[in-house]
Computed example of a mutant assay.
Amino acid sequence: MTKEQIVKIFHEKFGAEAPEVYTSPGRVNLIGEHTDYNGSFVFPGAIDKGMIAAIRFNGADKVKAYAIDLDESSEFGLNEEDLPKEGWAKYIFGVCREIIKRGGTIKAFDTVFSGDVPLGAGMSSSAALESTYAFALNDMLKLGIDKFELARVGQSTEHNYVGVKCGIMDQFASLFGKEGHLIRLDTKTMEYEYFPFDPQGYKLVLLDTVVKHELASSAYNKRRESCEHAARTIAKRHPEMEFLRDATMEMLLEVKNEISEEDFMRAQYVIEETQRVRDVSDALERGDYKTVGEKMYETHHGMSKLYEVSCDELDFLNDIAREHGVTGSRVMGGGFGGCTINLVKDELHDSFVADAKEKFKARFGHEPKVYDVVISDGARKL
């Protein structure tokens, strides 16, 4: 939806006075998966799909919100006991509450919003929604909260009002995104660096399996425990080691007989993935997309065979990418469903997508959804 269409709907709902309009994007993560809780690197970029919201203070004591895509309304106060029942409204309410907890004064407002970040495709529609409202309210009320703290506002909203114990990558990417650049974030130090990502002659394509296997949350916790156990065991010999990202394969091999085979495999994946992020950083500085692609395939293999968070649908799409000579392909996100992210040469794009859709449907009974994405700017006023 365009800014103009959203403003038109705002006027229909809330009258003639003009609103302010803000947007925040969804994100992709090129490489660095299941690394955030191991104190390692992630490598996201904001994309050209996101949320747009029209907002105007209403002088009342209640927020009135309308979700255009769902055709649902919600009305709520700004006190802790006013938590709305609508799932999507909890994000807006949570952002208001988290800003208030940080000493910011929030005034009630009227708002409508719409998005073209597909729900459940692993592009972080919820983070885009949180970042839109956090950025907008901070800007409109001149609260002076820095962008890092706004990312934490979004993360705390997930933790405290939605019940999702997410890391900070999604909100960070949505707020700090920069056109033509990926952001390498060190989750241990919170230092970040922009790397050029402007692959001439390539497209970035997401293939969404449209499946979500039930395993996801319990499996996530189990893998986290494996990594933490391996890290603790290594730290007995190497007390300087704080997170698994600080370990080397040599250190891991020293404790091979003291941990389970499963813990060993999980830790091996994380140590190798940390190195892959460094390799991709160097490759991007050289404009070497061939190496970037090779590392993406290595990550998929690691997530499938060592971390065991892939599934038949994702492995199937990865195999098709390889058959077609796609430069790079891997599962993106937590796994057990969702998307593959593919770095595809322009001349291969159409045949790869057509073949993937046809073969996937023949095997699994439905087509994958296809999203071409472009690396774009972060949260801003329109």
Rank of each mutant, 00 (worst) to 15 (best):
A136I: 03
S125I: 13
A136D: 01
S131R: 01
A121T: 07
F113I: 01
E130A: 06
F113D: 00
P118Y: 03
N138A: 11
L119N: 10
G122M: 05
P118A: 13
M140C: 02
S124D: 14
L129R: 03
A128R: 03
S126K: 09
S125Y: 11
G115V: 13
A121S: 15
A136V: 02
Y133A: 01
G122P: 06
S114N: 14
L137H: 05
D139M: 07
S125T: 13
A127R: 06
S131T: 04
A134T: 03
L119Y: 07
G122F: 05
T132G: 03
F113W: 07
T111R: 00
F113P: 00
M123P: 13
D139I: 07
A134C: 03
P118L: 03
S131N: 07
A127S: 15
A121R: 03
Y133L: 11
P118T: 05
A127N: 07
S131G: 02
N138Q: 08
G120Y: 14
V117M: 06
Y133H: 02
A127M: 12
T111Y: 05
V117A: 10
A121P: 07
L119T: 13
S114Q: 12
S131F: 02
S126Q: 10
A128E: 04
V117S: 09
G115K: 11
A127I: 12
G120I: 13
S114D: 14
A134M: 03
L129N: 06
N138E: 07
Y133F: 15
S126W: 09
L119K: 14
S114A: 15
A136E: 01
G120D: 13
N138D: 15
L129Q: 05
N138K: 08
S114F: 13
T132A: 07
S126L: 11
D116E: 09
S125W: 10
A121L: 06
S131A: 12
M123R: 14
N138V: 08
A128S: 15
Y133M: 03
S125H: 13
S124G: 15
G122T: 05
T132K: 01
Y133Q: 00
S126N: 10
T132N: 02
A127H: 06
G122H: 08
V117Q: 05
S114G: 15
G120Q: 13
F135K: 00
S125L: 11
T111I: 00
F135R: 00
F113V: 05
S131E: 01
A134S: 09
L119A: 14
F113T: 05
T111K: 00
S124K: 13
V117C: 08
F113N: 03
S125K: 12
G120S: 14
